[in-house]
Amino acid sequence: MSALLLSFAVLLLIGMLISERASRTVLSTAVLFLLGGFVLGGGVLGVVPISSGDPVVATLAELALFSVLFTDGMKVGFTDLRVAWRLPGRALLLGLPLTLVLTAVLAHFAVGLPWLESFLLGAVLAPTDPVFASAIVGREEVPAKLRHLLNVESGVNDGLALPIVLVLLAAAGGTEAGGWQLAEEIVLGVLVGVLVPLIVLRLERLPFLQAQHNLQPLLTVSIGLLVLAICTATHANLFLGAFAAGITVATYGPGFREEFEQFGELLTELLKLAAILVFGALITPAFLFQEIPWTGWVFAVLALVAARPLALLVSFLGSGLPRSQQIAAMWFGPKGFASVVYGLLVLESGISQADQLFHLIALVIFLSILAHSSTDVVVAKKLDQRQPLL
């Protein structure tokens, strides 16, 4: 644990010192932590000898995904969705299912996976995470319409894909919960995620219970921790609870969302980078070049360059979105942190194809972080920002 902490601290220091230059070049903090974990892991230097069964892996992944879904939910309150929903709606309601199906088809025919496992793989890899292409969503020269599309899509698709992953994983025999029990966990998670913030926000409006202004971010943190604790105690699905709680806070307490935004983003970023470091340490040279056949590499490349681009090409028909922005949106669908955690859920599920699925998931994410984090600045500089927000 001390070696992991020291490695994280050193990489974080290096990442922050080069962050200004990285924001203007193909350098990337995400790639730094991924490659850092790869080099420091058991397959190369052995400084951070972590295996998938270590408790720190599951705990860190769980906490990080909870934080990601909570902050993602706060980006997509109902009011935000009503303002400009057409393009994100196309990407979510048509592009996401099509990406899932196309990825499943590729997995079945390129790798030979059974159909159920192929669709599970498609569901795990369907969500996107523009944190790994931050120059696209964080630069003013990028058209606001495109930034809004990618931000809303990435904020919602993690939560939309999760129930599908859980249902398919249960169908494959990878969880003790099945049928009504699984439905109960999902519904209970959503209820906890909605009711807890509503109750806390209602209490905070009472004259004698108002939070001090400079402590309001901690009130939002307390809501998240309470949802986490209740979901854990009741066996409700804590990830859907986190997502529902974030949306509820954004909808009924927009002031708290604004106060929490910077603090929440920094906390989530720290947890993500730590999880990426651990994820990189799980990947060894043998993992990539001996344990994955050439058909797995073919699938991984096609999953990045064909599945999402074709799905969004269909989704954008008749949308009026400029072609350059369509191409940017089709390319910048990086496989991010949600896919990492969903992949770990599959690995620990015990299903017969778990190891093969995790290898394919890890390879796609590895290639995605390298490819998307290295091309975002180049593409951002070529985009025009004069397009109005729908």
Rank of each mutant, 00 (worst) to 15 (best):
16 M>H: 12
22 A>H: 08
30 A>Q: 05
30 A>T: 12
31 V>H: 09
31 V>K: 09
32 L>M: 06
41 G>D: 06
44 V>R: 01
48 V>G: 10
51 S>A: 12
51 S>M: 05
52 S>A: 13
54 D>G: 03
58 A>L: 14
60 L>W: 15
61 A>H: 14
62 E>H: 13
63 L>E: 08
65 L>E: 05
74 M>I: 06
75 K>C: 03
77 G>K: 08
83 V>H: 02
83 V>E: 04
92 L>H: 07
103 T>S: 15
104 A>C: 06
109 F>V: 09
119 F>V: 11
121 L>G: 12
122 G>H: 09
122 G>K: 08
124 V>A: 10
128 T>R: 04
128 T>S: 12
129 D>Y: 04
130 P>G: 12
132 F>W: 02
134 S>V: 09
135 A>M: 03
135 A>H: 10
135 A>E: 06
138 G>I: 08
141 E>N: 15
142 V>P: 11
142 V>W: 14
151 N>W: 11
152 V>T: 13
153 E>N: 08
154 S>H: 11
156 V>E: 15
157 N>D: 11
159 G>D: 13
164 I>A: 13
164 I>R: 11
171 A>R: 02
174 G>T: 02
176 E>N: 09
178 G>H: 07
185 E>C: 06
190 V>W: 00
191 L>M: 05
193 G>A: 03
196 V>M: 04
197 P>S: 06
198 L>E: 06
199 I>M: 14
201 L>R: 02
202 R>T: 13
203 L>H: 06
204 E>H: 15
206 L>D: 10
212 Q>C: 03
212 Q>H: 10
216 Q>L: 10
218 L>M: 15
219 L>T: 11
229 A>C: 07
231 C>E: 01
232 T>K: 12
235 H>Y: 01
236 A>G: 14
237 N>K: 00
237 N>C: 05
246 G>D: 01
248 T>L: 06
250 A>Y: 00
251 T>L: 02
252 Y>A: 08
256 F>V: 01
258 E>K: 10
258 E>D: 13
261 E>D: 15
261 E>I: 07
262 Q>L: 15
265 E>F: 13
267 L>H: 12
269 E>A: 09
271 L>H: 04
277 L>S: 04
278 V>P: 01
281 A>V: 03
282 L>E: 10
290 Q>V: 06
293 P>C: 02
294 W>R: 09
300 A>Y: 12
300 A>P: 10
301 V>S: 04
317 L>D: 00
317 L>H: 08
320 G>K: 12
321 L>F: 03
323 R>A: 11
324 S>F: 04
330 M>V: 00
336 G>Q: 10
336 G>I: 12
336 G>V: 09
344 L>E: 09
347 L>S: 15
352 S>P: 00
352 S>Q: 08
358 F>H: 14
358 F>C: 06
359 H>M: 10
359 H>P: 03
362 A>I: 01
365 I>E: 08
365 I>F: 08
366 F>Q: 07
369 I>Q: 07
371 A>Q: 01
373 S>L: 00
374 S>M: 01
374 S>L: 02
378 V>L: 14
381 K>Y: 05
381 K>W: 04
383 L>M: 08
388 P>L: 10
389 L>C: 14
389 L>S: 10
